[in-house]
């Protein structure tokens, strides 16, 4: 068994240790004797997403998102929408998460349409929501606590067409108001927790891998791994944030 993973826009959406997420997916497949291949699709990259088993989109800088919107309009946006509807597993972080929504409105009222793959929108704000945070996945995704670091100016609000990825235990999440964090729709996992989200959240990483394996092979038997280092890193931060 092998998963073909696509890192979309690594040339523009690559802030904050996003590589750690790819590395984690890779190692947790390799440690189980499962195959892994990585394709990086930069701006203007030709392949359609349907050829892959899991797509990762990271966060980026404001400056580079303008370059990106042009590429999305040239066809990649439609490609993402059809892959999402087709049940392709996506992990989208921060800027990549916002992009899948309907729109982004800047602090001075400028409306910028995004690709609309997910029923959510984002409002820009000058003051950023920054810090270590913890949220709990919904029961259907295993219900584990996810520890991350958020750093976003945008406040994201979910429409009725999507569910939250989890509930905030400590920190801000989507908007700092309604207690939701991230979004779930079909096999899309969107979150503000920027890279490296997965290494410290092995249960969440395995949930993504299982999602992709089930879709491709109809089953996912993931052997448990030795996670002592992961558990130690989790315990330290959970205790510090008072979320243990």
């Amino acid at each position: 068994m092998e998963l073909k993973i696509c890192h979309l826009y690594p040339d523009v959406l690559n802030l904050y240790g996003d590589r750690g997420n790819i590395l984690c997916l890779r190692r947790r497949l390799e440690w189980r004797g499962l195959g892994f291949s990585l394709t990086e699709l930069p701006l203007g990259g030709g392949d359609a997403l349907g050829a892959f088993d899991l797509v990762f989109i990271g966060g980026g800088q404001d400056f580079e998102q303008t370059v990106l919107l042009e590429d999305l309009r040239r066809g990649r946006g439609a490609d993402i929408r059809s892959a999402v509807e087709d049940g392709m597993p996506f992990l989208c972080v921060c800027g990549g998460y916002q992009l899948l929504g309907r729109s982004y409105r800047t602090a001075d009222g400028q409306e910028c349409p995004y690709i609309g793959a997910l029923d959510l929108y984002t409002l820009g704000s000058e003051d950023r929501l920054i810090g270590n945070y913890v949220f709990q996945l919904e029961p259907e995704d295993g219900g584990s606590l996810v520890i991350g670091f958020e750093n976003h100016g945008g406040r994201t609000y979910l429409g009725s067409g999507v569910r939250p990825l989890g509930r905030v235990r400590k920190g801000y999440g989507n908007n700092g108001e309604d207690g939701t964090e991230g979004a779930r729709y079909k096999n899309v996992f969107g979150t503000y927790s920027h890279g490296p989200l997965l290494p410290k959240n092995p249960a969440f990483c395995d949930r993504l891998l299982a999602c992709a394996l089930e879709r491709k092979y109809g089953r996912a038997d993931l052997e448990p791994l030795e996670d002592a280092a992961e558990e130690a890193a989790r315990a330290g931060m959970l205790a510090r944030l008072g979320a243990d």
């Binding site: 240790g17 996003d18 590589r19 750690g20 920054i130 810090g131 750093n151 920027h194």
Partner: peptide, 13 residues
Amino acid sequence: GTDVSWIWDAAYE
């Protein structure tokens, strides 16, 4: 910096 994510961008591999 309270964000230590950058260690994942350094080439420890």
